[in-house]
């Protein structure tokens, strides 16, 4: 099967079809894609089963998507989520 292409903060990456966004990012050596609201600390995936909500990413402009559940779709544009994902761009 040909891999799906997507981008993370502008970097082109690939995913095995059916792979979740969290797994695809992790495979590329990326282990954090969000900063927290208060301390601006880096977070990636923790529980990998949709429970903890640590893995929230902004996908195609839509914030708060759980990367550990979301299968990558060809052409997805993924960006690091800052805070709530609704913050004004600084």
């Amino acid at each position: 099967m040909t891999p799906h292409r997507f981008t993370f903060d502008g970097t082109p990456l690939t995913a095995v079809p059916g792979q979740t966004l969290a797994a695809a990012l992790w495979a590329a050596g990326i282990t954090s894609w969000r900063t927290t609201r208060h301390r601006r600390a880096p977070r990636g995936a923790f529980c990998f089963i949709g429970t903890c909500h640590d893995c929230l990413a902004t996908v195609n402009g839509r914030p708060n998507q759980r990367a550990c559940l979301l299968p990558v779709r060809p052409g997805d544009t993924v960006t690091t989520q800052e805070g709530t994902g609704h913050d004004p761009v600084r």
Binding site: A22, A23, W26, A45, C47
Partner: peptide, 23 residues
Amino acid sequence: WTLPGVVGAGGAQALLKSGLVLP
């Protein structure tokens, strides 16, 4: 425990089994 790279034990299993990726 909030550092990236600290993951759930069952989560590591999930990542490996379905994502085919080691933590």
